[in-house]
Simulated assay, not measured.
Amino acid sequence: MKKLMMRGGLMLAAGMMASVAQAQAVKPTVVLVHGAFADSASWNGVIAVLEHDGYRVIAAPDNLRGVRADADVVADVVKSVSGPVVLVGHSYGGSVISEAAEGAGNVKALVYVSAFAPEAGETAIGLTGKFPGSTLAPTLAPPVKLSSGGNDLYIQQDLFPAQFAADVPLASARLMAAGQRPIAEAALGEPETAPAWKHTPSWFIYGDADRNIPPAAMAFMAERAHSRQTVVVKGASHVVMVSHAMEVAGLIEKAARAD
Score class of each variant (00 low, 15 high):
D76V: 03
G83S: 09
A104M: 15
A115R: 03
E102M: 05
A101S: 11
R68P: 00
V73P: 01
L110C: 08
A109H: 09
P84F: 00
Y92C: 06
S98K: 00
L110M: 09
L87M: 08
E102P: 00
V74G: 06
Y112L: 12
S82C: 00
Y92A: 11
E102W: 11
V77C: 11
N106E: 09
V113A: 05
Y92H: 07
D72M: 09
H90P: 07
I97L: 09
S95M: 15
H90G: 04
V81A: 06
S98I: 03
D76F: 00
A69N: 11
A109T: 01
S114L: 05
Y92E: 06
I97A: 06
K79V: 00
Y92P: 06
V111Q: 07
A101F: 07
E99T: 10
V86C: 03
A101K: 01
L110H: 10
Y92F: 14
G93M: 07
R68T: 15
Y112W: 10
V86N: 02
V88Q: 11
V74Q: 12
V85F: 11
S114W: 02
S114G: 15
V107P: 04
S98Q: 00
A100I: 06
H90E: 12
S80G: 14
D76S: 15
G105R: 15
V111Y: 13
D70Q: 12
A115I: 07
V113P: 06
V113C: 01
D76I: 02
G105T: 14
D72K: 14
Y92Q: 02
S98N: 14
S80Q: 13
D70M: 09
S91T: 04
I97C: 11
D76K: 15
V78D: 04
S114N: 13
G93Q: 05
F116T: 11
V96D: 06
A71K: 10
A101T: 05
V107E: 00
S114C: 13
L87S: 06
F116M: 13
D72L: 12
V74W: 05
V85N: 08
A115V: 08
L87K: 07
G105P: 00
Y92I: 07
P84T: 12
H90S: 05
G89N: 10
A101M: 07
V74M: 10
V73H: 02
A101L: 12
D76T: 14
S82G: 08
F116A: 08
A109G: 14
N106T: 13
K108P: 00
V77F: 13
E102Q: 14
K79P: 01
G89H: 09
K108G: 04
G89D: 12
A101N: 03
V74P: 05
V78A: 02
S82I: 04
I97M: 09
V96W: 02
I97W: 05
F116P: 08
V96R: 02
A109E: 10
A104W: 07
V73T: 15
G105I: 10
V73N: 11
K79W: 06
S82E: 15
V85R: 08
V111C: 12
G83L: 07
V77Q: 13
V107T: 08
